[in-house]
């Protein structure tokens, strides 16, 4: 698909140059994409087809993306950063790596998406949301004769010893969201007591946030804590995994989009921003097997995605728990009190 349009473009461009008319290209756009590859390329082709803008898109995890924007601060090469968990977008906003832009579609968005924009001083905006939860391998639990856990506190029961996996919050934004969620649900001291109990059941702190549920799908662990949409993805692939929205309530992430400060193709970046917030475009996510909740109220939530209206979502304080201070404090405490505990 892409190659053919590229060839077509090349031929047309050659014809155009020969005819001494200005080139046909309608601008360029460099996109940094932090969602799954499928979704990235879907957005790329749709946008190119609709606007004629030549998109150069690279997929990197949100941590890598943020590191790149920081390193390129003096001379940015990226125009817009689309997708990826909200925290690094907020950090980038706080460091003024991204620029203020109020999309026209802002009023059409869900409150949590508008809130993300407000918190960042309109340097970023929410494009999708995903709730935290855990998934279990039904076959494995059955084989071991264990009941399915329903609440966060179930996970600390001794019967699940060595069966729970979660990422290391130092390396994974997903796991940091979980840490912040526990603190907000239980209060800080109780949360750390909960975590030290949980620690006894943890078999491994993974590096990547979605690794625990992949391990659960493959039967390497029984239970994995991660975002529900990642669990749904494994379910749809046919693995014997079940997703649980914990009974105490849960936190969530707001996947975001930011225009880079000093973008060389600002006009096209703004076009992309408006494009990405349109309900028909957000509805396409399901085609790319992405099961997050779209931020535009009129977009259709993909089949299988968690229904936010029935979830017990906490009032996640993004401003506080996204700030460098709180982050550093919680991570240091986790390192000191949890990580190196004996099991």
């Amino acid at each position: 698909m892409k190659k053919s349009s590229y060839l077509l473009g090349l031929t047309l461009a050659t014809v155009a140059t020969l005819g001494a008319t200005p080139a046909l290209a309608k601008g360029k756009l460099n996109v940094l994409c932090s969602t799954d590859t499928d979704w990235c390329s879907l957005m790329e082709t749709r946008f190119e087809a609709e606007t004629g803008v030549k998109v150069s898109l690279i997929r990197k995890s949100s941590g890598e993306s943020y590191a790149q924007l920081r390193a390129e601060r003096k001379n940015p090469k990226i125009d817009i950063w689309w997708g990826g968990t909200g925290d690094p977008h907020l950090q980038a906003a706080a460091e003024k790596l991204t620029q203020v832009y109020k999309p026209k579609a802002l009023p059409e968005l869900n409150d949590w998406a508008q809130n993300q924009a407000k918190v960042s001083g309109y340097r970023t905006v929410g494009i999708y949301a995903g709730a935290l939860g855990f998934g279990y391998n039904a076959d494995l639990l059955k084989a071991k004769g264990l009941p399915a856990p329903q609440c966060w506190k179930d996970l600390t029961k001794p019967i699940y010893k060595g069966e729970v996996q979660v990422a290391n919050p130092n390396s994974s934004g997903t796991s940091y969201t979980a840490l912040a969620t526990f603190v907000q649900i239980m209060g800080e001291d109780q949360a750390f007591e909960f975590l030290s109990n949980l620690h006894k059941n943890i078999n491994q702190y993974t590096k990547s946030g979605s690794a625990p549920i992949k391990a659960a799908a493959n039967g390497e662990t029984a239970i994995g804590i991660t975002f529900i949409h990642d669990i749904v993805k494994q379910v749809k692939k046919g693995y014997p995994v079940k997703a649980v929205a914990p009974c105490e309530g849960t936190g969530y992430e707001v996947g975001s989009m930011s225009i880079v400060k000093g973008a060389r193709h600002l006009k096209e970046a703004k076009m992309w921003a408006e494009f990405a917030l349109r309900p028909d475009i957000q509805t396409l996510a399901a085609e790319a097997k992405a099961y997050q909740v779209p931020s535009n109220k009129s977009a259709t939530t993909p089949d299988g995605a968690p229904d936010f209206s029935t979830l017990k979502l906490i009032d996640y304080n993004f401003a506080k728990y996204g700030s460098a201070e709180t982050r550093q404090h919680l991570l240091q405490r986790w390192d000191a009190e949890i990580k190196s505990l004996p099991r």
């Binding site: 995890s61 941590g63 890598e64 943020y66 590191a67 920081r70 925290d87 950090q91 290391n168 919050p169 130092n170 390396s171 994974s172 934004g173 796991s175 940091y176 590096k207 982050r327 991570l331």
Partner: peptide, 9 residues
């Protein structure tokens, strides 16, 4: 790697 790209930055 994770000191650079991870949540610690």
């Amino acid at each position: 790697f994770f000191a650079i790209v991870g949540a610690q930055n």
